[in-house]
């Protein structure tokens, strides 16, 4: 412990990227004129690296707009589905715009903004092979570890009378791994948020389709530090302003509009406070 501490301390002193300050995040953001936002790297079209190696996506554009409306600079930190909550808890980032469903369990550890995106969980399968989830209850289904979709699909299987749902669900670490498992036939279906599934299905047109009804609603919220209501108010106001002046729909149509490969009609409205 002693040695590791000395070493880590030296390293930390020499190479520290940035320092976490005590106190509410909002004051710090306004003082430094900089907000640090966690963004995913491999969620298509949420946030990903395109063919030119540039970081783009729906979530990416939302963060740009958010920072503009808060009147501060932005520093984007790469997160994945494992680190997006831990980083907020540790104070490494001020907000996490990262495909994150607002859940009560997560609410225990961090706060959330109002719902900024409406998604629902579906199942992707080979075209014409299955009609509903019930048709594939004897087969395997892929999900990502540590996500709400994993829990939802296990629940849905249990409701269909599957004795041991865990044995029918294979949980991978990455979306691409789920898709590969589906492509090679290891799993009959892959269940997660519909937008993600559409993104992958569009890569091989006609081969895969969404089947069955929505397994659940997945309201996405922006993850924020626990008990910092000034920051939460500011973020909520910014989101609502975006919706009111049409910026939100412009960004939405850029990524999910009818002409895009990920076409998905807008199914809800942001919560608007007068």
């Amino acid at each position: 412990m002693r040695i590791s501490r000395v070493l880590a301390l030296t390293l930390a002193l020499v190479m520290m990227a940035s320092v976490a300050f005590a106190g509410p995040s909002y004051d710090r953001i306004m003082k430094d004129k900089k907000i640090r936002i966690g963004v995913m790297t491999d969620s298509i079209p949420g946030a990903f690296f395109d063919a030119k190696g540039e970081w783009v996506g729906f979530d990416y554009d939302i963060t740009t707009e958010l920072a503009k409306r808060l009147g501060v600079d932005i520093e984007r930190v790469k997160v994945n589905n494992k680190t997006r909550i831990a980083f907020i808890q540790q104070g490494r980032i001020d907000a996490s715009v990262a495909n994150m469903t607002h859940t009560r369990e997560r609410e225990k550890s961090i706060d959330f903004s109002i719902t900024y995106f409406f998604d629902g969980q579906k199942v992707l399968a080979k075209t014409g092979k299955y009609k509903t989830l019930a048709d594939m209850k004897d087969k395997k289904i892929a999900t990502m570890q540590g996500t709400t979709s994993e829990i939802n699909v296990k629940r849905a299987l249990k409701a269909l009378g599957v004795a041991n749902p865990a044995a029918h669900v294979i949980s991978f670490q990455k979306e691409s791994e789920c898709f590969q498992a589906l492509q090679m036939g290891r799993v009959a279906g892959w269940s997660t948020d519909a937008t993600i599934l559409l993104g992958y299905a569009s890569k091989t047109p006609g081969k895969f389709e969404l089947v069955g009804d929505f397994l659940s609603d997945e309201p996405y919220g922006i993850g924020l530090p626990q008990n910092d209501s000034a920051l939460r108010n500011a973020v909520n106001a910014a989101l609502q302003d975006m919706w009111r002046d049409g910026t939100y729909m412009a960004i939405y149509n850029k990524w999910y509009g009818p002409d895009t490969p990920f076409a998905m009609p807008m199914s809800g409205s942001l919560e608007l406070w007068p």
Binding site: S4, L7, A8, L9, A12, M15, A17, A20, Q90
Partner: peptide
């Protein structure tokens, strides 16, 4: 690292450590 030093460092460095 965040717990011990009340600060955090880039994941590259925490991986290296």
């Amino acid at each position: 690292i965040p717990v011990l030093f009340d600060s955090f460092i880039n994941t590259v460095w925490s991986a290296s450590i």
